[in-house]
Amino acid sequence: MAKVVKIALAGEGGQGVQSVAQIMTNAANDEGKEALYIPNFGVEQRGGVSIAFCQISDERIGAPKFEIGDIVIALSDRAVVRTQQYVGPKTIFIYDASIEQAEEYLPTNGAKVLAIPALKISKEELHPRVFNVMILGAALQATGVLTLDQAKKALEKKLGYKFEQNPKLRELNHKALERGAQLMQEQLAGK
């Protein structure tokens, strides 16, 4: 059976995890892969932790939600706590380095636990608005489900009309994507 890559993305409302999930799965679909994305929803969607469950494969996908992710990304302290349950022995757990005292509740059973300074770099080098695009870059680097060029096409599809008005925005998004991937690569290489 074909391997299914399972990714859980979690953050606070407004951090854009659902749009990252949507762009990623849309891009996978555009490339002819099978993708399935479901947000957690419920009465807690107002003011709670927002989680996106994504699966990408070469074949049809089974259950919409999964118990253990291959990659689990948490972007806030609450998200770190909330996503513990999706971590298994093979899971790569990624969190934002700016989360204070994260070490207190980081999962201990994962294959790798990595911190990336995406929030800091987005603020200092790019723009806070493209924080989630950095996360997209990081997720793609970690999973290899799509190339950055394929992700750029997906960004173009979603934001192309804005890019036309302001080409600098395109440049900014591309940079964020690449920078996110680079951060991830450094972490995976153990730098």
Binding site: Q22, T25, N29, E34, A35, L36, Y37, I38, P39, F41, I61, P64, K65
Partner: peptide
């Protein structure tokens, strides 16, 4: 069901 309602797939 709610999963089918809310999920995206091809």
């Amino acid at each position: 069901d709610g999963y089918q309602a809310k999920m995206r797939e091809s």
